[in-house]
Computed example of a mutant assay.
Amino acid sequence: MEFDDYRKQPLFWNGIAMAVLTVAILPLLFLDTRTLLGANIWIKPLKFSLSLGLYSLTTIWVLVRFLKDWKYQRQIQLVLTSASVIEFALITLQAARGEASHFNISTTWNQIVFSVMGASISIFWLFHLWVGYQIFRKKTISRSIKESLVWGLTIAGFGMIIGFFMTSPRPEQLEAMKLGIFQTSGSHQFGSGDPGTGLFFFGWSTKIGDMRVPHFFGMHVMQIFVFLAAYLINKRDSLSNQKLVRSMGILFLLMNIVMVVQTLNGESVFNLNPIYTSIYGISLLLSFLCFFKLVSQPKKIYTQVPI
């Protein structure tokens, strides 16, 4: 596939722009030592540039490789690109101001920012699901590749919607709002007690429930399945391969759901709870076995018929 297939695609250049911005943000971590909630203020823009860049570059490959003839492809790209630019721009602006971008309703401006971000990511999510639906109904994609793409896009959609758990105001926040006190609405933390210093770079709590963990896991499992689909292009398609990919999809979705349940129970995913840890361990082991069986399958057999 030629570079010309990508260089006119908005989502491709969005991915490139996010990569450039990632490099541009890195020096700010050392030049600007301001912190917010115990972390450097530029960590969040950096995480989002990485995440949005990775999403853009993998999704554009799916669109160009499998949905090139879809009449709404460019419109989809423009919406996904616009929504991600709005999200990143507001997060970066708030970081520069030394203000939290998420859950912050302390001023009218902060309320507007939080509302606009919520609206843009909701639109992003709907159009992401539309891409998944188009892949699902496309009849020319081989069974195992389609299975991989559909599971990746579906689990990513589930990972995105997990964010709505975090934006719902907590009872104590609602009570404060009734008294005219507007500070925060929602949180990524679930449970009580000291959340601790958080995991390096990501900031995820290792002591209480942190919904950012299943949110991140769900969104970026998509890349695993997109890379698997790319690998399967050179493999012989078969019903058994389709079933193996489906099994991996079910196992990863199961892990993501269990992560949400564990987090809602106020417990960190990194806590070695015998029940949850067993589910994660068994699911990962079975997924690895499915993957090993997939990679051991023979490649496509190309035959030339003499003329």
Score class of each variant (00 low, 15 high):
100 A>V: 01
219 M>D: 03
242 Q>S: 11
35 T>Y: 04
41 I>T: 08
101 S>Q: 05
66 F>A: 03
71 K>C: 06
220 H>M: 11
117 M>S: 03
65 R>P: 03
220 H>Y: 10
297 Q>D: 04
285 L>K: 10
225 F>R: 00
118 G>Q: 11
149 L>S: 05
194 D>Q: 12
296 S>F: 04
33 T>P: 03
246 R>G: 13
293 K>Q: 14
14 N>E: 11
18 M>P: 02
2 E>V: 04
270 F>E: 05
291 F>H: 05
2 E>M: 10
105 I>L: 13
168 S>T: 14
25 I>F: 15
2 E>I: 07
175 E>Q: 14
143 R>W: 07
276 Y>H: 13
66 F>C: 03
294 L>M: 13
38 G>L: 11
176 A>K: 07
60 I>L: 06
8 K>V: 09
252 F>G: 00
268 S>K: 07
2 E>K: 11
51 S>T: 12
303 T>P: 02
84 S>N: 09
240 S>E: 11
285 L>W: 14
109 W>C: 05
144 S>E: 05
84 S>P: 02
274 P>W: 10
226 V>R: 01
225 F>A: 01
98 G>T: 09
301 I>L: 14
262 Q>T: 10
219 M>T: 10
90 L>Y: 09
179 L>D: 08
79 V>E: 03
91 I>P: 00
171 P>M: 08
78 L>T: 08
104 N>C: 09
227 F>M: 15
19 A>P: 01
153 L>D: 01
38 G>S: 13
206 T>L: 14
231 Y>D: 06
144 S>N: 10
7 R>V: 11
274 P>G: 11
280 Y>M: 15
254 L>G: 06
218 G>S: 06
69 D>V: 07
286 L>D: 08
142 S>F: 01
122 S>T: 15
176 A>G: 03
304 Q>G: 12
233 I>Q: 15
137 R>C: 08
158 F>Y: 10
251 L>T: 02
262 Q>W: 02
269 V>D: 00
2 E>Q: 12
102 H>W: 11
100 A>K: 01
116 V>M: 10
54 L>R: 06
56 S>E: 00
211 M>W: 03
115 S>C: 12
84 S>E: 06
78 L>H: 06
56 S>T: 05
50 L>M: 15
220 H>G: 04
99 E>T: 06
70 W>R: 04
283 S>I: 15
152 G>N: 04
235 K>L: 09
119 A>L: 15
135 I>Q: 02
73 Q>Y: 01
123 I>W: 01
223 Q>P: 05
287 S>P: 04
221 V>K: 00
16 I>K: 08
55 Y>D: 02
44 K>Y: 06
92 T>N: 06
175 E>L: 14
302 Y>T: 12
191 G>S: 13
69 D>M: 03
83 A>F: 05
14 N>S: 14
272 L>S: 15
132 G>S: 12
108 T>L: 13
191 G>T: 12
248 M>P: 01
